[in-house]
């Protein structure tokens, strides 16, 4: 099988997964005690008015018909109207998607850029102080309670030192003014630095420790011994022979860490008022705005699934032995 077939195959799997998720969401929200209208309607409303609204939302139809409508609407991106905002849900999530992608991808890439070389070094210098220090430091942040750590970071760097903004992604004045593209990009970067640093600090340990373990296994291989016997310089053995091969399992594990970093992403967005999907999900749930909550969740799921696909393609690119 060639790469094109492989991607098609994976896309098929993504579609099936999404189908299962949407069905699950439908069942989940229909399982609720009472029907969905009871959440948004004033209980004192006359029954006729209630009936009218039920009709408008299609809730008078049988469950199966509702389900088919639901599938069709989801497929066409028609997530309905928000219970809370005057816009349609699609308009809202469209606006929330880019900030999440920006924060999420930069954090994942940066944490791998830091984690992989560090993991390589501490495996090479096993038992050193550096290994102990990096492991303890990394693991502490790996298990730290993110909202709390974020708050402390804002307190120290924004509130006390005034280096960064308290939250948000843009300064409205900068974006309203006619200043050209560069100041605008700089403005976003200025807002991005703190949440990005927090997220990176939280995740680099994952890739670092994976790389360390993988590197330790690789260093036991016979071809390392051969390289040593040939008298190759240690640096060449470390970088060319060991690290390259050790990287493969780490890239595979990328798939799992993506979902994990989105967990952190939701909390980080909320703390830093980053206008992304995670924050939208939390706020929608607190506002009982279920259409928006479902759409935000669905989009987060799609984001992870496609990121996984990318990781798989990357894997195929890195390891020429892999044939699909």
């Amino acid at each position: 099988m060639n790469l094109g077939r492989f991607i098609l195959n994976r896309l098929g799997q993504i579609v099936i997964t999404l189908f299962i998720i949407t069905t699950f969401l439908f069942l989940l929200f229909r399982m609720m005690p009472g029907d969905p209208t009871s959440m948004i309607l004033d209980p004192k409303m006359p029954p006729e008015a209630k009936e009218l609204i039920r009709k408008e939302f299609g809730l008078d139809k049988p469950l199966m018909v509702q389900y088919l409508y639901y599938l069709k609407n989801t497929l066409t991106g028609n997530f309905g109207k928000s219970f809370y905002y005057p816009e349609t849900v699609l308009e809202i999530v469209k606006r929330k998607l880019p900030p999440t992608i920006l924060l999420f991808t930069t954090a994942v890439i940066l944490s791998y850029l830091i984690g992989l070389p560090l993991g390589k070094t501490i495996a090479w210098r096993r038992g050193s102080r550096l290994e102990m220090g990096a492991t303890v430091f990394g693991l502490f942040f790996y298990t730290v309670f993110i909202p709390w750590f974020g708050l402390i970071a804002i307190w120290v760097f924004s509130y006390r030192l005034g280096w960064f903004p308290i939250g948000g992604m843009l300064t409205p004045e900068v974006w309203a003014a006619d200043v050209g593209l560069f100041p605008k990009i700089w403005d976003v970067l200025y807002h991005l630095i703190l949440p990005l640093s927090v997220l990176t600090l939280l995740f680099f340990a994952g890739s670092m420790l994976l790389m360390r373990n993988s590197m330790l296994e690789t260093l036991r291989e016979d071809y390392i011994l051969t390289a040593r016997a040939k008298g190759l310089p240690e640096r060449v053995i470390k970088n060319r022979h060991a690290a390259r091969n050790a990287m493969l399992p780490v890239v595979t594990a990328l798939t799992l860490s993506l979902a994990f970093s989105l967990n952190g992403g939701v909390l980080t967005e909320t703390i830093f008022s980053w206008p992304g999907l995670g924050k939208a999900l939390v706020e929608a749930v607190l506002n009982h705005d279920y259409p928006l909550a479902q759409a935000a969740f669905l989009l987060l799921a799609i984001l992870v699934l496609f990121a996984n696909l990318l990781a798989d393609i990357l894997y195929a690119y890195l390891d020429p032995r892999i044939k699909y």
Partner: peptide, 11 residues
């Protein structure tokens, strides 16, 4: 395994 667990728990 691929779904982000916290959003799932929230929803």
């Amino acid at each position: 395994l691929t779904l982000p667990s916290l959003p799932l728990i929230i929803i």
